[in-house]
């Protein structure tokens, strides 16, 4: 699948005047589904708003920061990540069954869906284009270090790389290592170091310096 979002990048600028062929088809489909009673356009607006403003990687960052500061919570994540994450209020579509993958000294986890685009929506929101693209899906399982290098990450040669291909309805959340120099930080402050990519496993959590 194409990594580009070609020929439609700018329909915001042309709304109503110069819609692309695909944008016109979508508009036609929405109008038909509305006319026939399958969808309520106000519900479509609400769905877009949910994924633009409410469900995104800040959710996952809060899970990670709590795991870093609360050993009992970390144990719960290991035993039953679905329940532990639901306890933070995150559940539902695209995340029915959750597994937490802990990075540690000498162990790095990385998540992919080679067959489609499976991704833990309740904690990370919708996946970025690169995650759904052919370059990532093809190479994550055979050349993860090469992929990591494209994200600017080089791991020691003896670090074990564990790649998880999301082939079922289990969804994986990487718990990156807590950065050094964060002793005494509370969960809210720590959450600011947890990037989306660090929870996919294509990056590490930010260092306190980088976050400044």
């Amino acid at each position: 699948m194409s990594g580009h979002h070609h020929h439609d990048d700018h329909d915001h600028d042309h709304e109503g005047s110069e819609l692309s062929e695909v944008a016109l088809r979508v508009r036609t489909l929405e109008s038909l589904l509305t006319e026939k009673g399958y969808v309520d356009p106000a519900a479509l607006d609400a769905l877009v708003e949910v994924y633009e403003t409410k469900i995104g990687p800040r959710n996952g960052a809060r899970v990670v920061a709590r795991a870093w500061t609360d050993p009992a919570y970390r144990d719960w994540l290991r035993r039953d990540a679905t329940a532990a994450i639901a306890d933070m209020g995150y559940s539902g579509m695209g995340g029915a069954h959750m597994v937490a993958l802990e990075n540690g000294p000498g162990v790095h986890n990385m998540v992919v869906c080679t067959l489609c685009s499976c991704y833990p929506w309740p904690v990370l929101g919708l996946p970025p284009v690169w995650y759904k693209s052919a370059p990532y899906r093809s190479r994550a399982v055979i050349d993860p270090r090469g992929v990591l290098a494209e994200f600017g990450v080089t791991l020691p040669p003896d670090t074990a790389i564990r790649v998880w291909d999301s082939t079922a309805e289990m969804r994986y959340l990487v718990i990156p290592e807590r950065p050094e120099g964060t002793e005494g930080w509370d969960a809210e402050r720590l959450a600011g170091l947890v990037t989306r990519d660090s929870m996919i496993g294509t990056s590490l959590a930010l260092s306190p310096d980088a976050a400044r």
Binding site: D9, H10, R27, Y38, L44, L47, E52, G125
Partner: peptide, 18 residues
């Protein structure tokens, strides 16, 4: 951004709504 064009969000929303 979550969507690169307005129509992308509508496609996602129609999928969930239907």
């Amino acid at each position: 951004p979550p969507f690169h064009a307005t129509w992308e969000g509508r496609v996602l929303a129609m999928e969930v709504a239907t």
